[in-house]
Amino acid sequence: MQRSTMDLWVGLFVIAGIGALLILALKVGNLGTYSEAQSYTLIGNFENVGGLKIRAPVKSAGVVVGRVMDIQLSTKTFDAIVTMKIDNRYQFPKDTFASILTSGLLGAQYVGLAAGGDEGMLKSGDKIMKTNSALVLEDMIGQFLFDKASEDDGEF
């Protein structure tokens, strides 16, 4: 095998390999919409996170703006402390409302942010004051049955 032919093949191989890596990164992994380096942290306390998982998306108006990084239980208030990384491009007012929502009826759960009207913006490490827990299906059914029962009571 001639030296130059070999070099050519190896060059092609390396280019193909790096090309495949780039395809994976850009076309499949969608690198660029979300980057850890340019992000800030927000914390929210929830009474109940339901089935929220680490790495679940954080969405505002349906747009992914960040990800859940950590979920822990506070030993003082026995709330769940959810740490989120939010893309630097998106800033939220201080009275932003965070709730745990479900995509579709039985889909995965995510954190939804609804912006308020405050002038000041949340900074890295800030805590979101207004939160709404996950809707737990069992609780909902229980509530529904309870309401139905009380309605029936009223009729009599």
Binding site: F13, A16, G17, A20
Partner: peptide
């Protein structure tokens, strides 16, 4: 050096 490149090519080809 080759192994990660080959695996990336494998995955890209698979997709």
């Amino acid at each position: 050096i080759s192994m990660p490149l080959l695996a990336a090519i494998f995955s890209a080809m698979g997709i």
